[in-house]
Nucleic acid binder design. Structure first.
Length: 243
DNA sequence: AACATTCACAACCGCGCAGTG
DNA sequence: CCACTGCGCGGTTGTGAATGT
């Protein structure tokens, strides 16, 4: 269907981003946001395609990205979520504040998958030390002058839905990942996961500005409440007639 | 010390979906 | 309704670093 390529490859840079490119992209998004990825590189004077800019921003330059090793809780959460959602990395990422789908996908393919395959909790990875998060460019968003603050600019549709940090997973007992006993319709997840639950029990819609505040909240009892409610709903689904 | 192997992760690719004229 | 565009997602690859022999 005559689909044009995402960008003309002619004369555009590819491969690893340079510090200058990073700074240019950050500066441009700080000033103008990223309403149009396709037009962004031209406007910013970058020799990159919009897709590449978007990927770089979402996976690396975003100010709210949490760099560094995944905690055990985060890994457990990924395993649980993957058992429920499958390879819906963006949805999984939406439940792990500061983590990107790409990062989660990488972690899954590198060690979590192997960990499950071996089904040996004590199966230690060959590497004893994990190298620090690779940093080709040191961008300090802590700097008051460089921190991109885009309050009215959604970072991404999935990222704005952050609602919880990883939770501990005693809930596991009520759910068997290996069991195919029940299937949950996608609409359930899109509706359920699009909501966040405050500790008070009230529900926030994804678009609620309060959600953004929660994105920076540490793991808390509210998160556990979220999971308890979520799994309870999932359990209830089993008793519902198939639609 | 040198080479081989494995790992981690950034980046690319292509497809599908939603929005728009 | 159709064609087209832009975006987002998931799969895959490339490469440098770490580790083993």
């Amino acid at each position: 269907m005559g689909r044009s390529p995402c960008c003309e490859k002619m004369g555009l840079n590819r491969g690893p981003w340079t510090a200058e490119e990073d700074m240019t992209l950050i500066a441009h998004i700080e000033r103008h946001g990223h309403s149009n990825w396709r037009a962004l590189p031209k406007q910013a004077g970058l020799l990159r395609c919009g897709k590449s800019c978007r990927l770089r921003w979402i996976n690396y330059l975003r100010p709210d990205i949490k760099r560094g090793n995944f905690t055990g809780e985060e890994e457990d959460a990924i395993i649980q979520l993957h058992a429920m959602l499958g390879n819906r990395w963006s949805m999984i990422a939406a439940r792990l504040p500061g983590r990107t789908d790409n990062e989660i996908k990488n972690v899954w393919h590198t060690h979590l998958k192997k960990r499950l395959d071996s089904s040996m909790p004590s199966a230690a990875p060959k590497r004893k030390t994990k190298k620090p998060a690779a940093v080709t460019t040191v961008i300090t968003h802590d700097s008051p002058t460089s921190a991109p603050v885009l309050p009215e600019q959604p970072i991404s549709s999935s990222a704005t839905n952050y609602s919880m940090a990883s939770s501990s997973l005693e809930i596991t007992e009520s759910f068997s990942p290996d069991s195919q006993e029940f299937e949950i319709d996608d609409s359930f997840w899109s509706e359920t996961l699009a909501m966040t639950v405050e500790s008070s029990g009230s529900v926030m819609e994804a678009g609620d500005p309060r959600v953004a505040d929660r994105a920076s909240m540490p793991s808390s009892n509210a998160d556990m409440d979220f999971w308890v409610q979520l799994f309870m709903q999932a359990g209830d689904m089993q008793n519902l007639p198939q639609i």
